Amino acid sequence: MRGKLTVQFVLLALAWGASFLFIKVGLEGLSPAQVVLGRLVTGAAALAVIAAVTRQPLPREPVVWAHLTVVAVLLCVVPFLLFAWAEQHVDSGLASIYNATTPLMTVLVALVALPGERLTRAGLAGLVVGFAGVLVVLAPWRGAGGTVTAQAACLGATFCYGLAFVHLRRFVSPLGLPAVAVTTVQVGVGAALMLVAAPFVAVSPVHLSWPVVLSVTVLGVVGTGLAYVWNTNVVAGWGATTASTVTYLTPVVGVVLGVVVLGEQVSWNEPVGAAVVLLGMALVRPRTAGREREPGGAGPGTGRRRIHDGAGSRVAD
């Protein structure tokens, strides 16, 4: 069983780390909105099949659908669009590094939106260190280059993730809904919203090729569909604390694939800044680790679940 979980953990890191490569390749023949549309439609189809096979009933309450619509906008539509737009101007590896700031953004939003949230001194230091790492990646000493806006878009995407996870924690997680059902609705609503918006935002000429078609299909089916199942299994088997270490691997995968497959160049400040961001995450994370329910145990953190999107993985209460 442990060997099976290890394989799924590795596949998870590869799927989410490779998402930024697939976005980049998809942009060779599609506009950012078209990439997101294809990603969400194929991802929703994959999750619908998974929900049907596992016989997961979807929630029926209108208020739940309303909350999941908010989550779909903040966790799928807007950040996916921002990352896809940004990758027209920045390397896929750099985008994957910025994606690793999601836990820091989530903690920052939670401090403001959730009155019960408190940070230890180590956690506060982790926030400061983490955002110092962001500055190193941004490299302001180089001046206001043409990629600053694109890098800001990446940070805007992770800030949206933070807003979405806090909303999930406050309004959805207390309901105790099955995780597969929640994500199926979330991605499905995101796909529906993009289909409605497509006549207005996805009208650019399409230049399809096998790499473009395969990239968008894998991005949706694997990165936004199967990866969720792997993630759920790993969290159930190893606990969220151990499973969350996938966040440390995805930027490594993203950068390596960008260099090897796309021939991207990496400046010294990018891996250094990423390492500083990950150090900040390590300082922030221990506060919640003691409250989680690990396999075979019980405790006040039993309501904690991991939520994800195709570009990354995060833990929400």
Rank of each mutant, 00 (worst) to 15 (best):
Pro205Ile: 08
Gly263His: 09
Val255Asn: 03
Pro300Lys: 02
Gly296Met: 10
Val7Leu: 15
Gln56Asp: 11
Ala66Gln: 07
Leu30Trp: 03
Leu104Pro: 04
Gly310Cys: 11
His308Ser: 13
Arg305Gln: 14
Pro57Arg: 15
Leu40Gly: 05
Ala139Asn: 12
Val166Trp: 01
Val196Ala: 13
Met105Ile: 12
Ala150Phe: 03
Leu127Lys: 04
Gly116Pro: 02
Gly263Val: 13
Val53Ala: 11
Thr120Gln: 04
Trp85Pro: 00
Arg2Tyr: 05
Leu108Ser: 13
Val277Arg: 06
Val196Thr: 09
Ala164Leu: 04
Ala282Cys: 04
Glu270Ser: 02
Ala153Thr: 02
Ala84His: 07
Ala181Glu: 09
Ala181Met: 07
Asn99Lys: 01
Gln8Ile: 00
Val229Tyr: 13
Gln8Arg: 14
Gly273Ser: 06
Ser267Ile: 00
His67Phe: 14
Leu249Thr: 07
Leu74Pro: 08
Arg169Lys: 15
Arg285Gln: 12
Ser244Glu: 05
Cys76Lys: 00
Val107Asn: 01
Asn233Cys: 03
Val277Thr: 03
Val260Met: 05
Val189Lys: 01
Val218Leu: 15
Leu47Tyr: 05
Ala66Tyr: 07
Gly116His: 03
Gln186Met: 15
Gly303Arg: 01
Arg39Glu: 12
Phe165Val: 07
His67Lys: 13
Phe200Asp: 08
Gly258Leu: 11
Leu21Ile: 04
Gly156Asp: 04
Leu226Met: 14
Ala311Asn: 14
Ser313Lys: 00
Ala289Met: 04
Met281Thr: 11
Val107Gln: 01
Val261Trp: 12
Leu249Asn: 01
Leu124Gly: 14
Met1Ser: 07
Val77His: 02
Pro32Ala: 09
Ile23Pro: 04
Leu214Gly: 15
Gly301Trp: 03
Ile307His: 14
Val246Glu: 02
Ala45Met: 06
Cys76His: 13
Gly126Arg: 12
Glu294Pro: 00
Cys160Thr: 10
Ala191Val: 10
Val203Lys: 08
Gly297His: 10
Ala51Thr: 01
Ala192Ser: 11
Leu127Arg: 03
Leu40Gln: 04
Gly296Tyr: 13
Trp268Asp: 01
Ala298Gly: 12
Leu124Met: 12
Leu47Gly: 01
Phe83Arg: 07
Thr102Leu: 06
Ala95Phe: 08
